[in-house]
Amino acid sequence: MKLKSINHFFAFVLAMFIGNSAMAQSAQGPEMADLMRSNGKIYIVVAVCLTILIGLFLYAWTIDRKISRLEKEK
């Protein structure tokens, strides 16, 4: 199973280098967001989600620190 997933990872890296145009051309098979990936636009979605995640965690972190300060006051 482990070997399989490593293979999987290498296949992914390879696919990234070659570019996904080959995959987009094969029209048969279920439709996936290949176009989005070949345009590079999916990375924008990742960036947006990461920004939101970072923002939420920073917010939670400041609340955490405020509570820590309250705990120290006693």
Binding site: H8, A11, P30, I42, Y43, V46, C49
Partner: peptide, 11 residues
Amino acid sequence: IVAGFLWEVPR
């Protein structure tokens, strides 16, 4: 988020 959006998934 990074792997979840970018990694290959079964079609």
